[in-house]
Deep mutational scan, measured.
Amino acid sequence: VTVHVDGVEYDFDNPEEALKFAKKVAEDKNGTYEVHGNQIRVT
């Protein structure tokens, strides 16, 4: 699973970890996250 944040890609073997990371980053920057299959984009 790849999490995209501001043009940087973070790869996770564990989808739950990826989702947790995306949620935290989105909260920290008052943004949102979208899941597209095995890609998660934080905006």
Rank of each mutant, 00 (worst) to 15 (best):
V25C: 14
G7Q: 05
E27V: 09
E16A: 08
V35M: 08
G37S: 05
G31W: 12
E16L: 08
V35R: 08
H36G: 05
D11E: 14
E9Q: 14
N38C: 11
A22I: 03
N38H: 08
N38R: 09
L19M: 08
K20V: 07
D13A: 13
R41S: 10
E34F: 09
K23I: 11
N38S: 10
N38D: 09
F12H: 02
K20I: 11
K23Y: 04
D28G: 11
A22C: 05
T2C: 12
N30A: 06
D28T: 11
K24P: 00
Y33F: 13
D13F: 08
Y10M: 04
Q39M: 12
A18T: 00
A18S: 02
P15T: 11
H4Y: 14
F21H: 05
Y10P: 00
V3F: 01
Y10D: 00
A22R: 00
A22H: 00
K24D: 10
V42F: 04
R41I: 15
T32A: 12
K20R: 13
R41N: 11
K20D: 15
Y33E: 02
T32P: 02
T43R: 11
I40F: 03
V8D: 07
V8T: 09
E9Y: 11
K24R: 09
V35N: 04
V8Q: 12
T2P: 01
D6H: 08
V3E: 00
D28H: 10
K24Y: 07
E9T: 14
I40R: 00
Y33A: 04
G31H: 06
G31I: 05
E16S: 07
D13W: 09
V5L: 08
K20G: 08
V35F: 07
N14W: 05
A22G: 03
E16T: 08
D6L: 06
H36K: 12
F12Q: 00
L19F: 08
A18I: 00
V35Q: 09
P15I: 15
T32G: 10
V42C: 03
Y33L: 13
E27F: 12
K24F: 06
D11N: 15
D13G: 09
K29A: 11
V35K: 07
E16V: 08
G7D: 07
V1G: 03
T32H: 13
T43Q: 11
D13H: 08
K23R: 09
P15L: 15
V25D: 02
V42A: 02
V42R: 00
Q39S: 11
Q39E: 12
A18K: 02
A22M: 02
Y10I: 07
N14C: 10
V8E: 11
E27T: 11
Y10F: 10
A18N: 02
P15R: 13
T32Y: 14
H36F: 13
F21K: 03
V3I: 03
F12G: 01
D6F: 07
E34I: 12
V25L: 12
N14V: 06
K23P: 02
P15E: 14
A22V: 04
T2H: 07
V1T: 11
E9H: 13
D11M: 15
V3R: 00
Y10C: 10
G37P: 04
F12K: 00
E27W: 10
V35W: 11
I40K: 01
A26T: 06
H36E: 13
L19C: 09
R41D: 08
V8G: 05
T43K: 12
A22L: 04
Y10L: 04
E16P: 02
I40H: 00
E16Y: 08
T32F: 13
D6Q: 06
V25R: 05
L19N: 03
D11Y: 15
F12T: 00
E16W: 08
F12R: 00
G31T: 07
F21N: 03
D13K: 11
V42T: 03
E16D: 12
F21Y: 07
E17N: 07
F12L: 02
Q39F: 10
V1Q: 04
V1R: 05
Y33C: 10
V8P: 00
V42E: 01
H4E: 10
G31L: 09
R41F: 15
D11A: 15
E16M: 07
F21W: 09
N14Y: 06
A26L: 07
V42Y: 00
E27A: 14
A22W: 01
G31V: 06
D13Y: 07
K20H: 11
G7Y: 04
A18R: 01
V3A: 01
G31Q: 05
E9W: 13
F12S: 00
D11H: 15
E34S: 07
L19E: 08
Y33M: 10
F12N: 00
Y10W: 09
K23M: 10
A18V: 00
K29V: 14
V1P: 04
K23N: 06
H4T: 13
K29F: 15
G37E: 08
E34T: 09
A26N: 02
L19S: 03
Y10R: 03
V1H: 09
A18G: 10
G37Q: 06
K20F: 06
G37L: 07
E16R: 05
N14H: 07
D28S: 13
V8N: 09
A22K: 00
P15G: 09
H36M: 14
H36P: 02
A18F: 01
D13P: 12
T43I: 15
A26D: 01
K23T: 09
N14E: 09
D28I: 11
V5T: 04
V8K: 13
V42K: 00
V5I: 11
I40E: 01
E17V: 06
Q39L: 12
I40S: 01
K23G: 05
Y33S: 02
V5S: 04
V5D: 04
D13Q: 11
V25W: 09
D28F: 10
E17M: 06
G31R: 06
V3G: 00
V42N: 01
G37T: 04
E27S: 12
V8C: 12
V25E: 10
E9D: 12
E16C: 12
V5A: 05
A26R: 02
E34P: 01
K23S: 09
N30T: 04
G37V: 05
K24G: 10
T2L: 05
H4D: 07
D13I: 10
D13S: 12
L19T: 04
N38Y: 03
A18P: 00
F21D: 03
E27C: 15
K20L: 11
G7R: 03
I40W: 01
V42W: 00
E9R: 14
N30K: 12
Y10H: 08
R41T: 14
L19Q: 04
E17H: 06
N30R: 08
Q39W: 08
A26G: 03
A26Y: 03
E34A: 06
H4F: 14
N14T: 13
D11T: 15
K23L: 05
V25H: 08
P15C: 14
I40L: 04
T43N: 12
P15D: 09
A22S: 02
N30Y: 06
A22Y: 00
F21E: 03
K29Q: 12
Y10S: 02
T2A: 05
K24V: 08
D11S: 15
K23W: 04
K29I: 15
V42H: 01
Y33T: 05
K29P: 03
F12A: 00
G37I: 05
T2G: 02
V1K: 04
E27K: 13
N38K: 08
F12P: 00
V3S: 00
G7P: 00
N14Q: 06
H36N: 13
T43M: 13
L19R: 04
V5E: 02
N30H: 10
D6C: 11
K29T: 15
D11L: 15
V5K: 01
L19P: 03
H4N: 11
A18H: 01
V3M: 01
E34Q: 09
D6K: 04
D13V: 10
N14A: 06
A18L: 01
N38A: 07
A26E: 02
H36S: 12
A26V: 06
H36T: 12
N38T: 09
D6V: 03
V8M: 12
D11G: 13
F21M: 04
H36C: 10
D6R: 05
N14K: 06
T2N: 04
V35D: 04
K20S: 11
K23E: 13
G37N: 07
E17Q: 08
V25Y: 08
V3L: 02
V25G: 02
D28Y: 10
N30W: 04
K29S: 13
V42M: 04
K20N: 13
H4V: 15
V8L: 11
N38G: 06
F21C: 10
D6I: 03
G7W: 05
V25N: 05
N30M: 08
Y10G: 00
K20A: 14
I40V: 06
D28M: 13
F21L: 04
E27G: 11
T43W: 10
E27M: 13
D13T: 11
G37M: 07
E27Y: 11
K24A: 13
H4I: 15
E34M: 07
T32K: 13
F12W: 02
G31Y: 11
V35L: 07
T2K: 11
G7H: 05
D6E: 08
T43D: 08
V5Q: 01
A26K: 03
G7N: 08
